[in-house]
Amino acid sequence: MDGSAVKAILFDLDDTLIDTSRAGGVAMRKTGELLKTTLGLDDVTVSTVCEKFKQKLFLESFDPTAGRSIDEVRVGHWEESIQEAVGSRSTHPLAVQCYHLWKNSRLEFLSMSPETRDLLTHLRRTYKLLLLTNGDAQVQREKLKAVGCEEFFDAIVIGGEHAEQKPSPSIFRLCFSKLGVEAKDCVMVGDSLDTDIKGAFNAGVLATVWINRTGGVPNGSVKPDFTVPTVLELPGILAQIERR
């Protein structure tokens, strides 16, 4: 490691190391079937309910000190989504069912591929590895338990357990401190331009690697140093960095 320009790699979790979007899609389809059979809804209305839930999830701002658990908040998302789409009938028991089916199905289908596990095992022989993920602490810890990937990392930092999350420079500085390295020693790997790439760039890392699964074009003021469709191409990127 001492002769390497790169000493540490910071990885995002969702849609970088694990396919959270795919698992979420499976979970949403199963929950949609529950709604369809329970309420006798047509496909369009079911789709509307699910899209409303996804939008609430995307806009979610959870305060763990507010007196409600993340589970209660997300049951509320389902209850509101059903009421907004089909009317004001009492839906709390169904919302509880929807939430737990969606949550448990998503966790069930989350996995880290054998190829990714092999990659992390290989990289850890040369580099320090840290997992840096945004999100509520309970939710992300449940994902880590479901996937069983803690063993691959020298440290794990979950944004919801700290005052600030990505792209704040403070959480990147925390990561550097945990690994005993400087920003210039690190590469950040993630799928979000706004949080992973922008945050790491502002924190002064050596290089950023954007996981672009969809083939989209980066936009905004911050451009990744490297773009790949899968984390499995990271060894080739690291070789390029070392040759610079």
Results as ranks from 00 to 15, higher is better:
N104W: 10
S47P: 01
T31I: 01
D15G: 04
G3V: 13
Y99P: 10
P64Q: 02
Q83E: 13
S61M: 14
V86L: 06
D12E: 10
L107K: 02
L101G: 04
Q83T: 03
Y99I: 11
E72N: 02
L39C: 08
G67N: 08
V49M: 03
G24Q: 05
R22T: 01
D63Y: 06
I82D: 04
T45W: 03
S81K: 12
V86C: 03
T38R: 11
H100C: 09
A95W: 09
W78H: 00
A27N: 05
K7P: 08
V6D: 02
R106A: 11
P64S: 01
W78T: 03
G24C: 02
A5H: 14
D19L: 10
E84C: 00
T45P: 06
C98A: 07
T91K: 07
G67Y: 04
I70E: 04
S61L: 09
K36R: 11
S88F: 15
L13K: 05
V73H: 00
H92A: 14
V73S: 06
L10F: 08
H92I: 14
G67K: 10
D71G: 07
I9S: 07
E72L: 05
K52P: 11
E72T: 11
I82R: 06
E51D: 00
G24K: 09
H100T: 02
L35G: 05
V49T: 00
D19S: 13
T91D: 05
S4N: 12
A66R: 05
R89M: 12
V26I: 15
T38I: 02
T45L: 07
R89E: 14
Q97D: 15
A27W: 02
W78M: 03
K103V: 05
E33K: 13
F62I: 12
G87V: 14
D12W: 03
S88W: 14
T48K: 00
T20Q: 15
K30S: 08
L10H: 11
E51M: 08
I18R: 05
V96G: 01
G3Q: 14
E80M: 13
A85F: 08
G24E: 11
R106F: 03
S90G: 13
R68V: 15
T45G: 11
E33H: 13
S105G: 07
C98W: 11
I70L: 04
S61C: 13
G67H: 09
V96Y: 10
K54V: 00
Q97C: 15
G67D: 11
R68H: 13
K103N: 03
V73D: 03
K36D: 01
V6R: 06
A85C: 04
E84D: 13
E72R: 01
T91M: 11
L17I: 07
L59A: 09
G76V: 07
L107W: 04
G40R: 12
I70N: 11
S105I: 03
L13F: 06
V26P: 06
G40K: 11
S105N: 10
V6C: 08
G87H: 10
N104R: 00
I82C: 05
S81Y: 01
L34Y: 12
M28Y: 00
T48N: 00
A23S: 14
G40T: 05
T48M: 09
G3D: 15
T45S: 00
H100Q: 15
